[in-house]
Simulated scan of single mutants.
Amino acid sequence: MLTIGSTVLGVNDVARATAFWHAALGYVPREPGDDTWVTLVPASGSGAHLALMLSRTPVQDHPRIHLDLYADHQAAEVERLVSLGAQRVNWDLYPEDPDFVVLADPDGNRFCVVDKSPR
Rank of each mutant, 00 (worst) to 15 (best):
F20W: 13
E79T: 11
L67F: 01
G26D: 08
S6A: 13
D61Q: 11
A86C: 07
V14D: 09
H22C: 12
P32Q: 10
L50D: 00
W37R: 07
S55V: 09
A43W: 01
T3D: 09
R88Y: 03
T39H: 00
L40M: 06
P29E: 02
R64K: 12
T57E: 15
L25T: 08
R16A: 13
G26Q: 12
D35G: 10
M53F: 06
V41Y: 04
D68G: 05
S83N: 07
I4V: 15
A24Y: 02
A71M: 00
H73M: 03
R64L: 14
E31V: 13
G5P: 01
R80G: 00
A75L: 07
L54S: 11
V82C: 13
E79R: 09
A76P: 01
V59G: 11
A76E: 14
S6Q: 12
A71G: 02
P42C: 13
S55M: 06
N12Y: 14
P42K: 08
E31I: 12
R16C: 04
W91G: 15
G85D: 03
D72T: 13
D68F: 11
L54G: 07
Q74P: 00
G26N: 07
L54H: 12
L84S: 04
W91S: 15
V41Q: 11
R30F: 06
G10Y: 06
V28E: 09
Q74T: 00
N12H: 14
R30I: 04
E77A: 00
L54V: 12
L69E: 01
S46W: 04
A19W: 06
P63S: 06
A19G: 00
A24V: 08
M53Y: 06
H49Y: 05
H73N: 09
E77F: 00
L69Q: 07
V8I: 15
T3R: 15
A43T: 10
L81F: 02
D13P: 07
V82I: 15
L25F: 13
H22E: 13
G10C: 10
G45A: 08
R88I: 04
A75K: 06
R56E: 15
W37M: 10
G10T: 14
H49L: 05
A86H: 03
A23K: 05
V11K: 10
Y70I: 02
L52D: 05
Y27F: 15
W21A: 05
W21Q: 05
L84V: 02
A15I: 11
W37E: 04
S83A: 14
E79Q: 14
V78Y: 02
T36I: 10
S55F: 04
S6W: 08
G47Y: 08
W91Q: 13
G85N: 02
A51D: 02
R56Q: 15
H49F: 06
V78D: 03
A76M: 02
T18I: 03
V89C: 10
A86W: 00
T39E: 14
H22T: 15
M53W: 07
F20G: 14
A15M: 11
E79M: 03
Y27T: 07
P63T: 04
R80C: 01
P58S: 06
M53G: 01
A23Q: 09
A23L: 05
F20L: 14
F20S: 14
V28S: 01
A48V: 12
V8T: 12
A15V: 12
S55P: 11
V41L: 06
E77Q: 08
D34N: 15
V28D: 01
S46I: 05
L84C: 03
